[in-house]
Design a protein around this nucleic acid. Sequence first.
DNA 1: CCTGTTGAGATTGTAGACAAATATGCGACT
DNA 2: AGTCGCATATTTGTCTACAATCTCAACAGG
Lengths: 225, 225
Amino acid sequence: MTITKPILSSRVMIDDTVAQLEALIMRGELQPGDRLPEQQLANTLGVSRGPLREAIRTLEGRRLLERTPHAGVRVVQLSLDDLEQLLVMREALEGMACRQAAEQMTVHEIHKLRETAARIEKLINEGSLFIFSGQLDADFHLQIAIGSRNQWIRRLLCEDLYSLLRLYRLHGVRQPDNIALVTAKEHHEIIDRIHARDPDGAEQTMRAHVRHSRDRLLSQIRAAG
Amino acid sequence: MTITKPILSSRVMIDDTVAQLEALIMRGELQPGDRLPEQQLANTLGVSRGPLREAIRTLEGRRLLERTPHAGVRVVQLSLDDLEQLLVMREALEGMACRQAAEQMTVHEIHKLRETAARIEKLINEGSLFIFSGQLDADFHLQIAIGSRNQWIRRLLCEDLYSLLRLYRLHGVRQPDNIALVTAKEHHEIIDRIHARDPDGAEQTMRAHVRHSRDRLLSQIRAAG
DNA sequence: CCTGTTGAGATTGTAGACAAATATGCGACT
DNA sequence: AGTCGCATATTTGTCTACAATCTCAACAGG
């Protein structure tokens, strides 16, 4: 009997379509509120309506798309209140992830985390960090989510929540340097609590970090718009 | 010629199919690990493979089903570790929901919550409450999730998490009466913290409640199997 | 006897056509 | 001129057929 399991090698159009749709949304070519005409989109993506509809269903599950029966599909439009509530949820989930990371992360993972934090700090000192657009900042939180060994929280954060938050196009929201330095300091505190195997402290520190970031972001947006 | 097809409802077939599939899983007619042959299932449910596949995609998004390309779809099989991690996530989310409920719930909602808690206590005193199967207990947590005014946490708890947890078929897990009384006491404490508009206390109390429930459940399962 | 291959059967993935429902636009009537 | 109603058009929802892939058992060879 062959033991080979060609799961990874088999490419399915639907998965590619999901990725392409997600890319279209993230690149802003499909903006919040935009309608998705099935036939036209199918032609554009080079697939039939069947696979496209299944891909749409998948993204509906991630709350990126919303369907009203017989009226079509639209890219979700997040209100400011939605953004706030999503970030509240993030505080709860990342706090718990950080608690578990303090219990579960290996020393090697913690070392890698310090490297990431150091790179972020370096960028801040160079004055070139856009906190909410940086891949590095996302990496920092991603590493902790992975370190929690909680696949359910990790998938929720990485697959669902982060893409939803990116809908708000926070790119270009510039943090004043003094604020960015506070962020860097918080990163170090978080790592210290994880390294000290202090779950309570790790959770509290991460929650404060997410809360601060949320408060600053919301007040910035409210001031701008 | 024209073939009249019986229209089951004004809703779209796909939504009905999602509901029927979910019911099949919850009723145990489709058990964890079971394969879902598309053609056969489509015949059983009286729909074509197209709508069925879209319904399956929807339930995939809720993590109730898992698909491996070209190999079919199966009902998700939760390990004991999965159950523990899901309940850890629940602690974080319900804790935060309870915090927000303490800030947002109306006095009328709090009153309704007290009524639910009273009904639960009454059942306990009659010795007839199966904590983890009771619709009343689910109602208690549901009302708090609604009271949080956080639709994202509420949908995650009610639409995704609760059905996943029900996969474990905790029906019939009998709580000793003295334990059930502790549960009832915790319910009252939670309501008191909400009524006192004490977010910190409400979150801490709810988290302790969920944590205790998790610990008891896991030790019961580990002892049994 | 075991191993690896190969082909038939079954199942999943995709495409295109048909049916149902909603939106649009024109014309008639008040 | 405005509004109601009907017919048309567009879009979504569903079905059937076809193609691609996997499974499994039979079988040839070592």
